[in-house]
Computed example of a mutant assay.
Amino acid sequence: MDDYPLLDLFLTMLWFFLWVLWLFLLFKVITDIFRDHSLNGWAKAGWLIFCILLPYLGVLVYVIARGKGMSRRDVEQAEESEAALQEYIRKTAGTGPGGGTGGHADELARLADLRDKGALTDEEFEKAKAKVLS
């Protein structure tokens, strides 16, 4: 332990964490290159080759040149994911786009209420129920 002072250990850890941070940034840039629909295939290939052959410079130039687009694409992807999740929840729960009207359970409850009030006969209720459940 005497031949590896505390400051050298700190500097080694700092360089290691900076290297890991750079790797995360490199993977983020490569992911963004493939996710960007505004780039054609040649532009994607050029950016990818630039980031692989000159990794530090390539990532730095990409972040400077296209950094705003990266954040915009991240926001768009998050919004699309949220919309898809909400649509899945609505579909699974059986509710319509209004968020609670139009589901099978709501429709059946409304039909039962109409039958109980005398607005529907039992025969009409059964036909409407079969239509809702089909």
Rank of each mutant, 00 (worst) to 15 (best):
Y88M: 11
T121A: 01
G96C: 03
A83Q: 11
I49M: 14
I89V: 12
I52T: 15
Y4P: 00
E80I: 04
D113W: 00
V132S: 00
R90A: 13
D122E: 14
A83P: 02
A119W: 08
L25D: 11
L6R: 07
W19F: 11
K127I: 11
F16T: 04
L9Q: 15
A105K: 15
L57Q: 10
W15Y: 08
D36T: 07
W47S: 00
D32G: 01
A105W: 12
G118C: 02
G98V: 05
L26D: 08
E87P: 01
L6Y: 08
R110V: 06
K117W: 02
V29F: 03
D36Q: 08
L114A: 08
P55L: 12
L111W: 09
W22I: 07
G99K: 04
E76W: 06
L111P: 09
V132Q: 01
K129T: 02
T92Q: 15
L60Q: 10
T12G: 10
A128Q: 10
I30Y: 15
G100H: 03
L120W: 00
L120V: 00
T12F: 13
V61L: 09
E76M: 11
Y56V: 12
E87S: 10
R115I: 00
L120I: 02
L18Y: 09
F17T: 05
G99F: 04
A130C: 02
G102T: 00
F50V: 05
T12I: 11
D8G: 01
D113Q: 01
L85Q: 11
F10E: 13
I64V: 15
E82W: 12
R90C: 06
A83N: 04
W22C: 05
